[in-house]
Amino acid sequence: MNAFRFLGDMTHLFSVLVLLLKIYATKSCSGVSRKTQELYMVVFLARYMDLFTDYISLYNSVMKVVFITSSAAIVWCMRRHPQVRRTYDKEQDTFRHVVLVAAAFVLALIFNERFTFREICWAFSIYLEAVAILPQLVLLQRGRNVDNLTGQYVFFLGAYRAFYILNWIYRYFTEGHHSRWISWLSGLVQTGLYADFFYYYFLR
């Protein structure tokens, strides 16, 4: 575990906490894309299914449980919570996210570390995470009233993968040249998608 990765995980955790705070404190999910939240839940379920088979560390297992339960809680709130669900911008959140799931799955079948169920799920989760923010970015561009917490949520979410890129650079020079091209390319695409958001976020 290096500082970049730890910072990345903490930034990711913080982004989820900011979103939970926004939804809990304001009892509203206006400006939040439910589709992006559903995609993230799929990403975590597909990537962390080794939770019960491979024990890497207490930290690793605890964080996996936190990410799975928090993303499921957010989706549940946006679908079932009587007050919150009424504030969901259904008409605005129109991105056809099924296309993203299908594309990530096809890519994972073609490009993976090994053609095994677990590796295909892992690659699928990496590709899907790279594009999962798209419905949210589209919603932000449509919505006039981007409240601070939602903006901060997206900012921290974008920043976390940038820290991971630093982590991969660090590991490349310290742990030898493993082939991590799936993570590399997806991480660059993922962070790149935030570029214009960061541009406007800092200009605002």
């Binding site: 990711h12 964080m63 892992w122 982590n167 082939s179």
Partner: peptide, 10 residues
């Protein structure tokens, strides 16, 4: 079984 490299990350 050996964890494929890079899968020790979140």
């Amino acid at each position: 079984d050996d964890v494929v490299d890079g899968h020790d990350e979140l």
